[in-house]
Amino acid sequence: MLLDMILNKYPAQEDSLIEILLEFQDAKSSHFISEAEVKQIASYLQISEAKVCSVISFYTFFRTEQKGQHIIQVCRGVPCHVTADINIVKIIEKELGIKVDETTENKKFTLEYTSCLGLCDKAPVMRIDDKIYTNLTENKIKAILAEYRVYN
């Protein structure tokens, strides 16, 4: 239903693919694109399923499986890596008890790497959903996560 509605908004041509994927993933409550949905999108645009998968797999922000309520993305850019005298990923991993690319048991958080977020002057940087957090320290990270645990 949701996908049908979104598909009908776009012309049935290959260039619409990324916009459809973005809008649909955002609108769907579980924020991922399933195999059946890939099939439907491919069929609507008259392109192969492999082509849709290829595009989804190229961009880190598209997902094909269910993730946590909040997606934590740690910048993997070189400046973020060298500026910090702390290892952000290790701190978050310890704090949440999961590794990169895993989701917490309560489905609250998923931890991922992302490519450069373009805020190298404020490194180290991470993003939680649409919100960017800069100049991170261990205490700051703990405070941010605590806030998400309580209020979100």
Binding site: S48, E49, A50, C53, S54, F58
Partner: peptide, 20 residues
């Protein structure tokens, strides 16, 4: 025009496979 095989992923994780 069958497009069964595609490049999936990117960089060192690039693979050539059918969908999924």
């Amino acid at each position: 025009s069958t497009n069964v095989l595609e490049l999936m992923g990117r960089s060192h994780a690039l693979t050539v496979t059918p969908a999924f």
